[in-house]
Design a protein around this nucleic acid. Structure first.
Lengths: 341, 341
DNA sequence: GAGCCTTTTGGTAGCGCTATCATATAGACG
DNA sequence: CGTCTATATGATAGCGCTACCAAAAGGCTC
C-alpha cells in the first residue's frame, strides 16, 4: 500500500490537534475546554484559549455533529418568507435558539404541502436536532418522515389535534368567531367574509365566522368571497370591489388578514366610501400599519413573536428529553377594536 | 485493547453501507448514484434507489461535509428579519440556492456591527461554502475572519468600494440624490429630510439629498431630523410632528424609508394636512402599501428580490472558481412618482 | 488476438471531532 | 502510610461519507 499524503483541500486549516499541540495538551482537553462541559483547570483553559486565538482556530460543526450525533441545527418550516406573520415568529425563534448555539435552518414552502414535504426531506439531511413546523395540516408522508427519523417536533400557530404531537399557537376558529361576534355586537347584520390564499388557518377563521353568523341566524353564503390567489394589498382592494358589486347591501366585511383589509380600506378612501359609516371593515393579525391607518383598523392581534419564543422553548425541553406540562400551549389572541368598526 | 461495540446513539440509523449491502454493491457506488456525478449504470442506479427507498435512507450532510470539505451551506447576514427589504432579498437568495441543494443559514444582526461579527464567527463554524452579507461597512475583525477562512463573499444592497471585493446592489447616494432632484423639479424649495435607524444606507441617502440641495443652494441643516431609534410607522408619525414644529414652513419631506413616510402620511390624514397640497411626502424602498395609500406615496423602488437573486448567482460563480464579468453589479433603482408629490 | 483507450466499479484512508475507557494525580480516612 | 474515592487528563476508535487510487470490463484498431 502506497503512503498517502493528506488531502490538500484542507491543508492550512487549523484543527483541534493544532491547538492541542500549540498548547501542549491533548485534543480531548481542547474539545472539553470549548464545550466547557467537564471542567478543565483554569490554567489549562487559559493556555488553550490563548493557543486557539493565536492560531485563529474555528471549530468545525460538521465534525462535531458527526462525532456527537448532535448537529446544533434546528429546522423551521414556514409558508412564506415575505409575510410578516411568519418572520415575526422566526424572530422569536431566533431570539431563543441563537444564544444557545443553535442555527435555525429556514425552509419556505410557498404554502404548498408537497413543497413542504420536499423541503423537509432535504432539510433532514442536515440532521436537525429539532423541527418547528407551521400549522398542523401536513401530508401523511411528511408525518412519516418526522416519525421515522424521530425528530422532536413542535407545530406553531395552531393547536394540534393529533395525539402525541406538540404545539404552540392559538385557536384560529375562535379568532374568527370572536371577530364575527364583535361585528354582531356592534349592530352589523349583513356581515360578509373575504379571504384569499385559503390555507388551513384562513379556512379556520372562516369556520369561526360561519359559526357565529349561523348562531345569530344571519349566515348568508352569498356574502362570502373566497379567492385562491396569493394574498396582497392590491387583491384586497379588488376583492372589495367584487364584493360590493355582488352584495351592495353588505354593512360589514371581515377579511381573513390585514393585508386584504388594508387594501380594502385604501380602496374605500379612494371611492369615497365612509368607513365605518357606510361599511365597517375588519382584518386579522394586527400588522403594524393597522393601528395608524385612517380610520384605524379593527383586527385580531396574534402573539406571533411569543409563539416563536414559546415554541422554541418547548422544543428545547423536548430535545432534552423532558415533557412539557402543556403539550398544546394556547397563547390566545386579542381583539383590537378600532375605528373601522 | 478491549473490543468496543458501536455507539448506541446512532444504531438503527440507515447509512450508505446499509444501502450498499441491500443493493449488492459498494458504498462508493451508492455515494456516486446520489451525487449523480460520475455516472453509474442505469441498472445499478435503479437497484440502489430501490434499496434506499425500502430502507428509508436519508443522506447525512455532516458526514458529506467532513469528507468533501463542502458543507452545502451558504451564510446570509441581514440586519433584520422583520424588515421587508431584507426578507425580499432573502426570498431571491433562496430562490436561486435552494434548488441547487444549498441550505441558507440566516443570521440577523440587529443592525449592530459587533453583533454581526459575533454571528459571523459562530456561523463560520458551519463552514459555509459562501457568504452573502448586507452592506459594505463592517468591522476590521469581520473582514479578517472572512479573509482568514477564505470564504467567497458577496456584499448586497450597496456597491463595494473595497478593492478585491464583490457586490450586487445600487448606489444609495444616487437614490437619495434622485429623490431630492425630483422634489426640486416639482418646484419644492423648503425640502426636509427625516431619518431613523441611521445605518450606512440611510446615511448614504442623506448624503445624496444633501448634495442635491447644496447644488441648488437650498440646503438647510435645520430642516433635518436624524433619529437613532428603530424605524417604524409610529416613529414616522411622531417625527412628522416634530419636524413641523421645528420648521413649519417646510413644503416637502423626504423620509429615508417607506415605513416612516407611511407613518407621516397617516398622521397627515389625521391632522388634516393636505398631501401634497400643504406638504409633499416621499419615501424610499417602495413597500407594497405605498402604491395604494391615499394619496399614493412617491418613493424609490429598489430591486431587492433581484439583488438577492443576482447576489446568489454571483456567489455561485465565485464558489466554482469563476470570475464574474462585473465585480460590482449595479442594479439601479426606479423613481416612482406618485400622488404624494 | 495483442495493445490501447474508455467506461464502470471497488477498496480504503482519512475529514475533525467526541464517546468511551483508562490512567494519573490529589485529597480523605483510619 | 496504604487504601479508597474524587477529579483532571489522555489514548484511541469510530461517526458516515468522499477523495484518491486501482482494477475490471468492454470496445476498438490493426
Amino acid at each position: 500500500m502506497s503512503q498517502r499524503k493528506p488531502r490538500s483541500s484542507f491543508s492550512g486549516r487549523i484543527t483541534l490537534a493544532d491547538v492541542a499541540r500549540h498548547a501542549g495538551t491533548s485534543m480531548i482537553s481542547v474539545s472539553r475546554a470549548f464545550r466547557q462541559k467537564s471542567l478543565v483547570t483554569e490554567e489549562l483553559q487559559a493556555r488553550i484559549f490563548e493557543a486557539a486565538r493565536t492560531l485563529g482556530y474555528v471549530p468545525n460543526r460538521a465534525a462535531s455533529a458527526l462525532a456527537s450525533a448532535r448537529s446544533m441545527n434546528i429546522a423551521a418550516l414556514i409558508p412564506s418568507m415575505t409575510n410578516n406573520v411568519f418572520t415575526d415568529m422566526l424572530a422569536g425563534i431566533n431570539e431563543v435558539l441563537t444564544p444557545r448555539g443553535y442555527q435555525v435552518l429556514i425552509g419556505s414552502t410557498g404554502y404548498s404541502p408537497l413543497e413542504e414535504q420536499r423541503l423537509l426531506r432535504s432539510i433532514l439531511e442536515f440532521r436537525p436536532d429539532g423541527l418547528l413546523i407551521t400549522g398542523i395540516d401536513h401530508l401523511p408522508e411528511t408525518w412519516r418522515l418526522i416519525e421515522t427519523l424521530t425528530v422532536p417536533t413542535v407545530s406553531l400557530m395552531e393547536l394540534a389535534n393529533r395525539p402525541g404531537s406538540y404545539s404552540v399557537g392559538l385557536s384560529q376558529i375562535d379568532g374568527g368567531y370572536a371577530m364575527a361576534r364583535h361585528l354582531l355586537s356592534r349592530g352589523y347584520r349583513r356581515i360578509g367574509f373575504v379571504a384569499a390564499q385559503l390555507d388551513p388557518r384562513t379556512m379556520a377563521r372562516w369556520e369561526g365566522y360561519k359559526k357565529a353568523l349561523e348562531e345569530a341566524d344571519l349566515y348568508a353564503p352569498s356574502r362570502q368571497l373566497l379567492a385562491p390567489e396569493k394574498s396582497s394589498i392590491r387583491l384586497g382592494a379588488d376583492l372589495l370591489d367584487q364584493m360590493l358589486e355582488k352584495s351592495p347591501d353588505t354593512d360589514a366585511l371581515f377579511f381573513c388578514n390585514d393585508d386584504l383589509a388594508q387594501g380594502a380600506l385604501f380602496r374605500c378612501q379612494r371611492r369615497g366610501i365612509a368607513v365605518p359609516g357606510q361599511l365597517a371593515l375588519a382584518g386579522f393579525n394586527d400588522l403594524p400599519a393597522s393601528a395608524w391607518t385612517m380610520p384605524s383598523l379593527t383586527t385580531i392581534a396574534t402573539p406571533r413573536l411569543e409563539i416563536g419564543r414559546a415554541g422554541a422553548e418547548m422544543l428545547l425541553e423536548l430535545m432534552q428529553g423532558g415533557e412539557p406540562k402543556n403539550r398544546n400551549q394556547d397563547l390566545g389572541f386579542t381583539l383590537m377594536s378600532r375605528e373601522s368598526t
